[in-house]
């Protein structure tokens, strides 16, 4: 008996203490608050479900951001005027073929950006989940990364393109006049400066993406929003589970904002 008494935790003891008031429906505000927290967070270790959901949200967001950055940067470069108007006249067959391919890719990049920005993310998620991967068993996390990454790439492309175009033309000329190829000039001289001016908008895009992963609850991925929703279906509390999920989103976004702000200040210090 003694062991059983000891196994009752502080929270459970508190829960038992307010039982009479729960039955009599005479809870004070603080007791009511405790009841909500106990039912939606503590009971049955429900807090673990939020954390699991948070983990999946972070996992999907992180990899989707990577996919978006990589693909978005490539799309941005393809959309630059000097790439769109690439000209290899008289440089031989292979150079000409390359130029034609690059021009076709550039056209495709434009089309891609318009389609991805012009249709709802939810629709894209549904198409990828039920259409493309409908008959293939595929981890929902991977589907989420693909859908959110492909969508984010379109926005990232425009942010990066804006960043690149904000770098003075003289920087390219200086790089090229030293003998650096256009690719090396882009990598060592233009992109680092573009990244700096694009950072605030990029932060915005990352924040949007993190929150938009909540749409993945639609395809039954138990990320943070779905986790809260699932708990609501168990406890019938209409507010508390969503508020807990919301607070966790807020913590993630505020942490990210703080980190990027720090990075921004560091980059600013490097060139006063």
């Amino acid at each position: 008996m003694n062991a059983a008494v000891e196994s009752i935790s502080f929270f459970e003891q508190l829960w038992l203490n307010i039982q009479p008031a729960v039955q009599a429906n005479t809870l004070t505000f603080w007791e009511y608050l405790y009841k909500e927290i106990y039912l939606n967070v503590i009971q049955g270790n429900r807090w673990l479900q939020y954390l699991k959901g948070l983990g999946i949200t972070l996992e999907v967001s992180f990899f989707a951001i990577l996919v978006g950055l990589a693909l978005g940067t490539i799309l941005a470069i393809l959309r630059l005027p000097q790439v769109q108007n690439i000209n290899c006249k008289g440089k031989g067959f292979w150079a000409n073929l390359g130029a034609v391919c690059v021009k076709a890719l550039s056209k495709f990049a434009g089309l891609y950006i318009n389609i991805m920005r012009g249709t709802p993310l939810l629709l894209q998620v549904l198409i990828i989940n039920f259409g493309i991967f409908g008959s293939i068993r595929m981890d929902k996390v991977i589907i989420g990364v693909i859908a959110c990454g492909l969508n984010s790439a379109a926005y990232v492309a425009e942010i990066v393109r804006g960043g690149i175009m904000s770098v003075e033309k003289g920087q390219t000329e200086a790089g090229r006049s030293l003998g650096l190829s256009s690719l090396r000039t882009m990598i060592y001289i233009i992109l680092p400066q573009a990244a700096k001016s694009a950072l605030p908008s990029m932060c915005n895009e990352f924040i949007s993406l993190i929150k938009e992963t909540s749409i993945l609850s639609y395809i039954a991925l138990t990320e943070l929003t779905k986790a809260g929703d699932y708990i609501r279906s168990r406890t019938f509390s209409a507010f508390t589970p969503y508020i807990v999920s919301g607070l966790l989103y807020l913590i993630v976004v505020l942490t990210l904002t703080w980190l990027i702000g720090k990075l921004e200040r560091r980059l600013r210090n490097s060139d006063h």
Binding site: G90, E168, G170, Q171, E173, A174, L178, G179, I189, P192
Partner: peptide
């Protein structure tokens, strides 16, 4: 001016100084 010339190699041999310096600020 021959398109087949490697222009990058050629530019290595010619230094250029601009009106607005164009140093790399980063």
């Amino acid at each position: 001016t021959d398109p087949r010339t490697n222009i990058n190699k050629h530019r290595e041999k010619m230094g250029m100084v601009f009106q607005h310096f164009n140093l790399f600020p980063h």
